[in-house]
Design a protein around this nucleic acid. Structure first.
Lengths: 349, 349
DNA sequence: CCAAATTGAGAAAACCTTTTCTCACGGGAG
DNA sequence: CTCCCGTGAGAAAAGGTTTTCTCAATTTGG
């Protein structure tokens, strides 16, 4: 039977301090500290006795005290404005994953697109003496609504526009696009269209350039990319434009889409027109948003930006900056990866 | 012109300390502290002079030192296993949102479904002296892979299975289901089917019970819910089952779906069969996953679990626990909200 | 057997802030 | 003129840990 008196104030007893360990082991705090950290000189027997005592008492050093002294909090801030998006989550997981093993914890700071909120969070992080900051967002070509340029701690930008002279990590969108188009070429497709998002996004142009580049390199005729919205609806419309005038020989046998939602719209529209995917037309998307890619019929081949890796790299980059290792400023691009499902077809052989 | 020597080691200068402020103002640290905190006694003139000095020097108190003394770190941990999911993100945003104004920062800890990782994160949080922990996940009826039952700090569970005797916050799934079914009834629908996820999920039964309950209360005949998967594919199949035998008079005029993906599959399948939505059959989904709900044709009416509010409430609950206010243990259910779009139809009038 | 070197361990300062005491000084009351 | 009290401000301890310095005791070398 558990009494109320027993269960209620269960979180009252304070943690064990080094002083208590020292007392229990019959040594000074200095000796105890050195014993546990493998520092200083003492008999192996003493060291072991202290360690055993600490273990028995469940001693865990107070990070706050350690941080105060060492001027390292083993804490970093993660700033994002991608509240509901799907980009920041894998990225955050990657960051967290890279850092937890080194004993570094991550402050999650959601700043929306709000200056005031950004300011608030940055100040809170600074006050808590974070060792560094990772800035991330939903767009590679936009700044967060905060100024991180004159902080006295290192900053790494991942999947967001870096300040000039700062360290930035982004996905290699051009490379990702090449991956898709070259895959189509290997499968024998020759008339490859590109349906993508609005002109206002930098990645729209990056990917379109790469698409066009691969076609040119292979001596194929190029056309204009179809710019629209990042939506299924636009995918439908685009199919209308591409296949509207029936019977024309110039209709594509492959469509490279700017994201998975567009691709989904494209595939649905093609099916409704009785055009078979992948037999008549192959489709490749971008983002590899699994829940969408796997629900299309057939399942969607898509370019994955490896956001978790990006997050991991960002975490590691920040850490080495914190350790005083100067990092080459500028933007580093991390490779994408093509996840092949069934929407792109199989080799002709 | 900015010289390299100037821009490179920009994060070398240490922050201003209270001691420096005191020196600059010609007082002791004690007086400086009191001046800035509005404590102690001194001439208004002295206080103002110190404040002005602090402002000029850009002094910000070191949270680490404050925490050490006050035994409050103004920091909480947020534990989740929903790495890529869409539930935890709005929830986390809500938590962060509720706490940032009170100067509390949130440690993001992604534990996947990994015991070791969970252990690691909890220990890191404890070492950093978080004031409390919020546990959240992707399923209401599953525990996180960590034992939080004997911590000496308060824990609040949000959208995950709480330990017995703990404080838990979840969405009111039964209420949400009622919202949907009653909406159908108000629109004059009478034969309302229910297509939902696998039997292994508690919410499947909760929502199904509520659905059946509303039908019974209104004297309508009830049937068995169709249990399957949380996927579009299952939505398709379910339509097959419901409308397979053509001509039967008992075919539904409304379908309440267990999530938005199922609803999406249902709507697509209905369209392919030439059944008009919402004219012939109304459809309502669950989760209000906007990116899906808005892409269905027609846009999907759906039950929103108000996850951001849930997160906010969880944050506030934890805070009052931290402040020593005893909270009633047990599970508190927060209301859902029906977001009406076009898939459910309009009133007959 | 003595001086020197080494060893084991503790004292104390430092990190930065808050808070409780203490104290000097000036003014008012008796 | 003395006593007491209120006022303004500083000294010091506390919080938990790390690290440098110091010192006594023991061992080594001559």
């Amino acid at each position: 039977m558990v009494s109320d008196a027993e269960s209620a104030p269960v979180f009252a007893k304070p943690p064990v301090t080094l002083r208590e360990v020292a007392a229990a082991a019959g040594v000074s705090v200095a000796t105890a500290s050195k014993a546990l950290n493998g520092q200083g000189r003492m008999t192996a027997e003493t060291r072991e006795r202290i360690r055993e005592t600490a273990r028995l008492l469940g001693f865990r050093p107070n990070s706050l005290a350690q941080s105060l002294l060492r001027k390292r909090s083993f804490t970093v801030g993660l700033l994002t404005n991608d509240t509901y998006g799907r980009f920041s989550l894998p990225l955050m997981a990657g960051v967290s994953d890279a850092l937890v093993d080194k004993g570094v914890s991550v402050f999650l700071c959601n700043v929306e697109d709000d200056q005031r909120l950004g300011q608030l969070h940055v100040e809170a992080m600074l006050d808590k003496r974070v060792d560094g900051i990772i800035a991330t967002g939903k767009r590679i070509d936009r700044h967060l609504p905060v100024d991180l340029s004159n902080l006295r701690i290192p900053v790494v930008y991942a999947f967001t526009q870096p300040d000039p002279g700062a360290v930035g990590l982004v996905s290699d969108d051009a490379g990702g696009a090449r991956l898709a188009v070259e895959h189509f070429l290997r499968l024998g497709r020759r008339r490859i269209a590109h349906v993508t998002g609005p002109a206002g996004f930098a990645v729209v142009h990056t990917r379109a350039e790469a698409w066009r580049g691969v076609l040119k390199e292979n001596g194929l005729t190029t056309s204009e990319p179809l710019l629209g919205a990042w939506s299924e609806g636009w995918g439908h419309e685009a199919v209308e434009k591409l296949f509207g005038k029936a019977g024309r020989g110039g209709q594509p046998d492959a469509i490279f889409c700017g994201n998975d939602q567009i691709a989904r719209g494209v595939i649905d529209a093609l099916r409704e027109r009785g055009i078979r995917v992948p037999d008549d037309v192959g489709v490749i998307g971008f983002d590899n948003w699994e829940i969408v890619a796997e629900a299309t019929r057939p399942p969607l081949t898509s370019v994955d930006m490896n956001l978790a890796s990006l997050g991991r790299e960002a975490g590691l980059a920040l850490l080495s900056l914190v350790d005083g290792q100067p990092a080459a400023p500028g933007i580093r691009k991390l490779p994408c990866r093509l996840v092949v499902r069934q929407s792109c077809g199989s080799p002709p052989g």
